[in-house]
Nucleic acid binder design. Sequence first.
DNA 1: ACAGTAACCTGTTTGC
DNA 2: TGCAAACAGGTTACTG
Length: 270
Amino acid sequence: MPELPEVETTRRGIAPHIEGARIKRVVVRESRLRWPVPPRLRELLQGEHIVRVARRAKYLLLATPSGTLIIHLGMSGSLRLVDSALPPGKHDHLDLIFDHAALRFHDPRRFGAILWTEDPVENHPLLRELGPEPLSGSFDGERLCQRARNRTGPVKSLIMDGRVVVGVGNIYASESLFLAGIHPLRSCGRISGRRYQHLAGAIKEVLAAAVAAGGTTLRDFVREDGKPGYFAQRLRVYGREGKPCPVCGTPIKKRRISQRSTFYCGQCQR
DNA sequence: ACAGTAACCTGTTTGC
DNA sequence: TGCAAACAGGTTACTG
């Protein structure tokens, strides 16, 4: 589910409600997520207050004075702000209960994660090797070009590699390549520097537009208030197999590239 | 060192 | 209609 725009949408939704708020209680109903929820999380968080809600790649970082709660939404996770009296539903695995509301973590597939660290969060093993933020100045065509050297394999895999650039998942990879006019199967080494600049620009453009629309809801992504994101209506190729390319009308193709469905226009993308 | 892929889960859709 | 297989937005850990 959630790629960078969905995680950023969630961050923006919850931050104003929980920054500065004190955690009254922690309820863990299911600790078997991607990794076990830390057994001592209740004691660690009880009475702490949230200093800041940040995001790195697809990780949400809830900073407290004693450490940082790291939340990943996996494929099917979402966070909602609810009345703490609202009875939990199926797959509502964890609540952080504040005075005025509860932050509720919901994740049917349990690929998500909730972790705790007391070290500087950027040193955490999961965050340490990550590439630049796509919407920051440290990501550009030159970086893509550099990381494409000595690399074989399709360009789609390059832009989905978190060590190259973070936040680009399966939907936005297809969308960015369409916008840049590059075929997803094109080999990394067979793309000019100029085209890599276009691609970097396309990634920024697509992600920024998706953030502005509140993310993409395909089936189960919801924002903190339970509403969907509206970028699905603006997808040009993803999920549109057989439908006309919005630019040239040629039917959109679908292929599997390293086990992931990939959508593109065989006419516009070379 | 790198690239490809199996594995982690549940729910929904597709195909026979 | 029913059942099984395929597939779904992510990422690590393994294999070769």
